[in-house]
Design a protein around this nucleic acid. Sequence first.
DNA 1: GTATCATAAATTGGCGCCAATATTGGTAAC
DNA 2: GTTACCAATATTGGCGCCAATTTATGATAC
Lengths: 215, 215
Amino acid sequence: MSEVQSETAVGPEERDVTELVLQDILTGMLPAGTWLKQIDLERRYDCTRPEVRRALDRLSQKRLVAHVPNRGYHVYQPDDRNAKEVGDIRVILETAVADMMVANATSDSIATLRGLARYFDEMTLTGTILEHYEANLAFHRELLLLGGNQALVDLVSEIRQRTSSAPVSQWRTRARIEKSGREHHMMIDALEARDAEELKRLIALHIRQPADTPK
Amino acid sequence: MSEVQSETAVGPEERDVTELVLQDILTGMLPAGTWLKQIDLERRYDCTRPEVRRALDRLSQKRLVAHVPNRGYHVYQPDDRNAKEVGDIRVILETAVADMMVANATSDSIATLRGLARYFDEMTLTGTILEHYEANLAFHRELLLLGGNQALVDLVSEIRQRTSSAPVSQWRTRARIEKSGREHHMMIDALEARDAEELKRLIALHIRQPADTPK
DNA sequence: GTATCATAAATTGGCGCCAATATTGGTAAC
DNA sequence: GTTACCAATATTGGCGCCAATTTATGATAC
């Protein structure tokens, strides 16, 4: 019956339920297609019914879960077409500000990026899936920030969640994770060398990588 | 006391409250800064308390209204910086697929666009603010559709709502409305002439126009 | 006359109950 | 033995009440 089994050992939960469900979807704890029964979530996250409903409504607005009236909510099944399209959008947005990123890069910001890239590498070895995921986010966020468009940074963060509903499959092989880590450093190199074209090339490659991989 | 006065003569309302509030914000009936008291909205749209709250929560997620805990919700006050940034994002996204639009344009699609452009012109004279707004949306949607990226069309529709919180000020002079109408036709001309560069130039001009205008 | 505090009114927001609907399991008929 | 129908159960989702917090008002002291 209950589609949600795994109990994340919760202490006294103070955080927002939406975030918690989001994390569990992003980390693959709630696989695509899973029916999210309100009673299960209520118990799983130790919260009330209205909180669960608000979270589900928000996530369905974000297209992360699908809502079938009188049937319930289930984790969205990402289709390949949409995934490719969103990838294209990310390439468009992130390469568009590459020139600005090169222009705005200082030795300070490059040092910060190096730190974040290294932190990502560390988390590959020692961190949880979530920590690893967030380390990746932090790096890209800091990089994008150099573009000088805060709204763009936020937007990319948003649409990033829109297809990475299957993040596990993206990062499933260690080889690919390590390749991503190396690419981070290569991007910083391009930034240091003030080579905007190379940076664009690397960004496009980096984003499309998970999608273009043969099954 | 009550910040919301105007009563839109409602019959038996069957539609979603979120859409109704959204429309009233977009059409300027609920100006920026207006406090959205739950009781007022309840009466205004003839709906229940939970419906109002769900609508307000959704709109705050979309950044259209701001939420102050224990104080309430109010229509978001758009700041110039964000407006400029979102404008830049739109230019990036919409010009990025200009080549594809030129490549995919058929005589059929051009005829459809002509129709929509003419419909926009009609609504300038005879339509309501909402009809006019939606006619504009329909034209740009159809144009973007030629880019072949459905996710991008949806995304642009979304971020479009994010700054046009002051649509009234955008369209306040008839001269500018008519200029927009002419630009629509010029875009179609460029499409017909297979001139992608000119199309990009026109799109950038068309989007930035409302923002660049001197006060 | 003005500032401050206490009291009262209003508004937000959390919580639980109950009706409507879908699903499952059992039973009977063919 | 299989299928169709019906009853029982479980789940969703709408609705209203009440506590907590904030804001407005009026009275009192300086």
